[in-house]
Simulated assay, not measured.
Amino acid sequence: MDSLLSICDIKEDVLNIIDLACDIKADKKEEKPLEGKTLAMIFQKSSTRTRVSFDVGMYQLGGRAIFLSSNDLQMGRGEPISDTARVLSRFVDGIMIRAIEHDDVIELAKYSDVPVISGLTNLEHPCQVLADVLTIKEHFGSFENKKICFAGDGNNVCNSLLLIAPLLGMDMSVACPKGYEPNEDILKIAQEYAKENNTEIVISDNLNVALDNVDVVYTDVWVSMGDEAEKAQREIDLAPFQVNQELMNLANDGAIFMHCLPAVRGQEVSAEVIDGPQSVIYDQAENRLHAQKAVLYYYLKD
């Protein structure tokens, strides 16, 4: 059963899904393509954008979504993930899971007879970056000759951006302190994609190097759920990589600022930037709905 656990799973179909999202946003698709379909939504981690966008997306496509927190499931009390997958597969047409461990999502998909869509894990956030690149396409018109820089902690969003950027013909850099680099295995795959698509990936702790010829500056929170014990040290280490106006000035004229939200103004980004004219964060947030409707259509349509 095909599932979306990683950008690698849609390597050949990324452009088709983005085009589908554009059509859905422009209301060019049939009105209720998922009528009669049900999506189970499992949340091990709290969420605003993921929960609302999937719920509303299913409703607008004619289906329905069922919210299931870990407290609502026997899985939260020790039931094997394999049993949960097999049982839910008898009830629903698809499963979206926002999980802590990526391996849990892999196991869920292994035993599921319906598509499984990752709403986030500690390793990747594929649905988020589909919304991100949809926003980039809308703003610039195409991906050609565009470069994105992720500044800060090389986290799950950074990992997924590294995978999707070369597939769309974009260069990418990561500006981060030593010890905060993206996942090594993800980076190796991304570098292979970059070689195949004649694009470039740069990882650097030098802001001048990382921000050279950049059209999109992206950041995320420094302290994600689960990292609270490291909060003080992370704030010290990542402080030089705050996206403020001085850093934005290193990027190209006309560069845009992106953040997947929630944001901590005054930490990873200054209020001047996130609330300023270069910020597209609310377009980006809205596009979670349209990108996820495309994913739902792609995986759940007959």
Rank of each mutant, 00 (worst) to 15 (best):
T121N: 09
E107M: 05
I97C: 07
S142A: 14
I117H: 06
D103Y: 08
L130H: 03
S69H: 07
N155E: 13
F91V: 05
D113A: 15
V114N: 13
S112N: 10
D132Y: 09
R86P: 02
K147H: 15
G152I: 04
D113M: 14
D83K: 03
T121C: 07
N155S: 14
K137A: 05
G94H: 09
V116L: 12
C149G: 00
R86I: 00
F140M: 09
M96Y: 01
G78V: 00
L120E: 10
S70E: 15
A131G: 15
N155L: 14
I136W: 07
D83P: 01
G152R: 03
E101M: 08
H125S: 14
E124H: 09
G78R: 03
R86G: 00
S142Q: 08
D72N: 13
A85H: 05
C149V: 15
H102S: 10
I97E: 00
A99H: 12
V87Y: 01
A131V: 04
G119S: 09
H102V: 04
I97Y: 09
T135N: 04
C127H: 04
E138R: 06
Q128R: 05
Y111L: 01
G154I: 12
D104V: 00
A109Q: 03
H139A: 12
V114H: 11
Q128M: 01
S69Y: 03
G94K: 07
D103S: 11
T84V: 05
F91K: 05
F150E: 04
S69W: 02
G76Y: 10
R86K: 14
R77T: 02
Q74T: 03
N156F: 04
S69I: 11
D72C: 12
K147C: 14
P115I: 08
C127V: 14
E144G: 03
